[in-house]
Simulated scan of single mutants.
Amino acid sequence: MKFNKNWLLTIVFPAILLAGCSTPGSHLSIDSKNVIEFDSNPESTLAEHINLYPLTAHTVGSFAHQQRFASQPNPGLDTQVANYEYRIGPGDILNVTVWDHPELTIPAGSYRSASEAGNWVHADGTIFYPYIGTVAVSGKTVREIRSDIAQKLARYLESPQIDVNVAAFRSQKTYITGEVEKPGQQAISNIPLTVLDAINRAGGLAENADWRNVTLTRNGKEEAISLYALMQRGDLMQNRLLQAGDIVHVPRNDSQKVFVMGEVNDPKLLKIDRAGMSLTEALSNVGGINQLSADATGVFVIRTADKESEHLADIFQLDINDASALVIGTEFDLQPYDIVYVTAAPIVRWNRVVAQLLPTITGFNELTEGVLRVRNWP
């Protein structure tokens, strides 16, 4: 019996359309959606906003975006520490000693500590002292206060010998927050307190600390400090003398991550550790490239461009056809949110297309043979 192709089409196409209406799984179509166009030039393509840089032995050094730190002194900090003097504030407790006059030094019958028996600096910045009454002390050093009290007591005592010290430092504090072992407030005292000192007093860095992006907030202004440069590289220029109200924050390293995708043996998200991470190290952490499917010339690092840049992203390409080129990858430091992508070889991409087509072709052939058998059955 002669086979009628038109008759076959009238059966196959409606069946295909019906199958499309009942395809399993979810689907999202944009055909009926209101698509908002933000691009002022709709004809521009993504490729026009991306720069591609080959990574070679001669060029890799110029792509070292992370700042290189070196050991260096901080003469400005040394001067501040040498000239440092604590200034009294409300809440501090002063201990005033008048030699040869114990009645002016320790109240009769008192066996309390110096901080308990001392002179409390009131909210208005003054203390009360016998004979001379109210003394303004806020904002002054102990040497200035000693001179003031001695001058006023000279009216009642002959050549008074005065000593003044701080029994308790309570007026000025700095705050250490974030990923340290003991976060909290630390008192500013007569001993200069630096960022490094404060971190050590707080028990050091916690396991998940991001020591490259520590912030110092002073008077509402934020400054970035790299504890990596300070502790690991000996860059003392990263250290600061802390003042009252300063906030030192050590963030978590949650943002220190890169994405390794494509034709690698174990694609996954990686966290940049405290020592940093190179491109070769990232490839090693995912088991290397897939030797059967990867295109060794297409190891890419996709990096979002700076906000000031006119383009969208930078792409860095490393050719590791010669495995010795992995040495170049050790010189390329990854940055947070970099995407390491290893592309597939051309033959692999073609085989994947064929693999997608084969089920459809096979199913169509089986359907055609079935229709022919039904047609020829009588």
Rank of each mutant, 00 (worst) to 15 (best):
Q291E: 02
V301K: 07
E308P: 00
E281H: 02
T297H: 09
I289C: 02
A305G: 07
T297S: 14
G298I: 02
D319W: 08
F316D: 13
N290K: 03
G288H: 11
L279K: 06
V286N: 10
T304P: 07
T280L: 04
L279D: 03
I289Y: 02
N290S: 12
Q317P: 05
E310S: 14
I289H: 01
S293I: 07
A305H: 05
T304M: 11
S293F: 05
V299H: 02
T304H: 14
T280F: 04
Q317L: 12
T297M: 05
A305Y: 00
L312P: 08
M277K: 13
F300A: 10
T280I: 06
S284D: 06
E281F: 09
A294Q: 00
Q317M: 13
V301Q: 06
L283V: 06
E308S: 11
A294H: 05
V301P: 05
I315D: 09
A296C: 01
A305I: 00
L292K: 15
A294N: 00
S293D: 13
T280W: 04
G298M: 05
G287M: 10
I302H: 08
I315N: 04
A282V: 06
E308W: 06
L279C: 08
S309H: 11
A305V: 10
L318H: 01
S284R: 13
D319G: 06
A275W: 05
S293M: 06
G287N: 10
G288V: 09
D314S: 15
E308L: 10
Q291V: 10
G276L: 13
L318T: 03
H311M: 12
I320C: 05
H311S: 12
E308V: 07
M277T: 01
T297W: 02
V301H: 07
E308Y: 02
D306H: 11
I315T: 14
G298S: 09
G287K: 13
Q291F: 12
G298N: 06
I302L: 15
I315P: 03
N285S: 14
E310P: 08
L283H: 09
S278T: 15
K307I: 07
D319F: 03
H311D: 15
R303N: 05
S284G: 14
E310G: 13
E310T: 10
F316V: 03
R303K: 12
D306K: 13
E310D: 12
L279V: 00
S293G: 00
L318Q: 09
D314T: 06
R303T: 09
F316W: 06
S293A: 12
L283Y: 03
V301Y: 04
